[in-house]
């Protein structure tokens, strides 16, 4: 379980997170929504330990990662996997090498074993035969799938998705959703995703948290959040330009 309490962070005097409180139960799929620039990515980077907060805590299975020393932090981060928005594949490595990379660097597996495992994982995400291509030779949807394979290969307990399907066509989007669901069924783990695709959020998650002006204003199951009485949540879900959320 990840428990965030009173998380604050400012950049150049502008406070982006103004005391975020959120609980992500083990095994759930949590979606964090909010308008662009609301600080979702900043919150996300705090969850995976890429950023250190000004104050507050991020407790992962009992360990506060904002206060851990480098060695202990590493141990906690081993539980994490992340699928970045653009995939963040290493462009100097082939697709197969990208998937093999974390195993090669972090485990004692033999070269033949890890290549076999990477090949299996590539097949799992439906890209067998693409192993020798470089990341700039494949499409955005394929990159996302390779990134998912690269994250899954280390069997993470917490898998983070930064905008899992933004910029992809509806068919690829559905394929990725199906893949995410299948992976979760195969190896149970906690999914945390940032998204502003309402359809995706309602379809995939079992908890939705809305970040607005630096705080979580509502956190509930998708069925409940659609019936929320909060005008901000209502406006965001409906996508209306009329309401408390200012356009700029």
């Amino acid at each position: 379980m990840i428990k965030v309490s009173n998380l604050r962070k400012s950049f150049d005097g502008v406070e982006v997170l103004k005391g975020v409180d959120i609980e992500i139960p083990t095994g759930s799929t949590m979606a964090i929504i909010g308008k662009s620039g609301a600080g979702k990515t900043v919150l996300f980077k705090h969850l995976v330990g890429l950023m250190r907060p000004d104050s507050g805590s991020v407790v992962v299975d009992g360990a506060d990662i904002t206060r851990l020393r480098a060695g202990a932090l590493k141990e906690v981060k081993r539980k994490f996997g992340m699928v970045f928005q653009g995939g963040a594949l290493f462009d100097s490595l082939t697709v197969l090498e990208n998937i093999a990379f974390p195993m090669r660097e972090l485990t004692g597996l033999k070269e033949s074993e890890l290549l076999k495992k990477a090949g299996e994982m590539l097949k799992e995400v439906g890209l067998s035969g693409m192993g020798n291509k470089y990341p700039d030779e494949i499409s955005g949807g394929m990159k996302k799938r390779v990134a998912l394979a690269r994250a899954l290969v280390m069997s993470p307990e917490y898998l983070f998705f930064d905008e899992p399907t933004t910029g992809l066509d509806p068919i690829v989007e559905n394929a990725i959703h199906a893949l995410m669901k299948r992976c979760k069924a195969l190896a149970p783990c906690t999914y945390i995703m940032v998204s502003h695709d309402i359809k995706e959020v309602l379809e995939m998650s079992d908890l939705v948290a809305m970040l607005h002006e630096g705080v979580i204003i509502e956190c509930s199951a998708p069925e409940e959040i659609t019936g929320s009485s909060n005008p901000v949540v209502k406006q965001f879900l409906s996508g209306s330009t009329e309401g408390p959320i200012q356009m700029y």
């Binding site: 981060k77 081993r78 994490f80 970045f84 653009g86 963040a88 462009d91």
Partner: peptide, 17 residues
């Protein structure tokens, strides 16, 4: 720089490298 903006550096960090 390109590795930074395409989040490859962050990816290494999340992998604990």
């Amino acid at each position: 720089g390109i590795m930074r903006i395409s989040e490859q550096i962050d990816a290494l960090d999340v992998m604990t490298l």
